[in-house]
Design a protein around this nucleic acid. Structure first.
Ligand SMILES: [Zn+2]
Ligand SMILES: [Zn+2]
Ligand SMILES: [Zn+2]
Ligand SMILES: [Zn+2]
Lengths: 160, 160
DNA sequence: ACCGATATGTTATAATGTAACAGGCGCTGG
DNA sequence: CCAGCGCCTGTTACATTATAACATATCGGT
């Protein structure tokens, strides 16, 4: 998965993510309740990380009973079941591009437009595993967040 | 730089870090004022990331005038001059093991004892740069934080 | 229908981080 | 000397992110 191209059909993109989530939850015997489902949809609304309080505000406008624990619990569920990732650099959350297989996730974050793309590249994981092993360290989880300019913003002249 | 061994002389370790900081600041024409110096010492107190409010509390006990901006400003200075790194996963700060050359920093974080080690391994940087390039992404900064068990804690049986 | 487990509602508060402005200190040019 | 300027610090107030704790509701199996 990489950055969405301009002609990208985002409706289909969201439907795909929701279908994948449904099936992942069925597989794991997890309950994708209405509020969890809605939070996941909102996280997928655009290809950018979303803050918990932004989600909260949207939910409130939509008439949900909304207090911080509401959204944090939903996010916690989605994290535990590998449906979203947390971007530590931004205290924000983004949809997982390939749920099903638990994985750490590595992200490219555009400083100009805010877009996030999940990097499905094992060479990075491998380099980390090897470097850790050389230091006698056994890895359980890794966080990789790379800031820079996405292809569109480079073309647009954002960085020059 | 890796995890400190048991017979590690931490006094010398701190002195070395402070000397390196002095010289880096002289080089850059930056002023390592008493409060900045003290914050850096406190960050180096052990080989674990320290939170801003923990630093604040210590400073207060030592009689400094201490409000959040005090410590955040010192940390900001130390970050800008490459003397500390911020650990995004923990909202905490840790001393830089090789100041002088600006670099992103990659960290091994032990989940058991809390120790942090800065990875000076270019293979990870290279893998990331290559993966980013394949996606048409130009990197400006990267955050790599690897959680797991350090050699000592593995030996101690923490993970079994 | 009942029960235990899970999910949600609600209130309050903790933890982390910034904005904004006032005052001080040290250098530099007159 | 001293006026002006830049940087550093003090102080107050506030913004943002996250969790604790307890009450209530809902689901699913018996
Ligand atoms: Zn899309
Ligand atoms: Zn962009
Ligand atoms: Zn040491
Ligand atoms: Zn350890």
């Amino acid at each position: 998965m990489s950055f969405p191209v301009p002609q990208h059909d985002h409706g289909a993109c969201i439907r795909g993510a929701m279908d994948a989530a449904e099936s992942a939850c069925r597989m794991q015997g997890a309950r994708l309740t209405p509020i969890r489902r809605r939070v996941l949809e909102l996280v997928w609304e655009n290809h950018q990380p979303v803050g918990a309080y932004a989600l909260l505000e949207t939910l409130a406008k939509e008439g949900w009973s909304a207090a911080p624990p509401t959204v944090y619990r939903a996010l916690d569920f989605l994290l535990r079941h590998g449906l979203v990732h947390r971007i530590a650099l931004q205290n924000a959350f983004v949809g997982c591009s390939h749920p099903g297989e638990p994985h750490a996730g590595a992200f490219l974050l555009c400083s100009h437009c805010g877009a996030a793309a999940e990097l499905a590249d094992l060479s990075v994981d491998r380099a980390i595993a090897e470097a850790a092993a050389r230091n006698g360290f056994s890895v359980t989880r890794q966080t990789i967040e790379v800031e820079g300019l996405c292809p569109a913003c480079r073309a647009g002249g954002a960085g020059r």
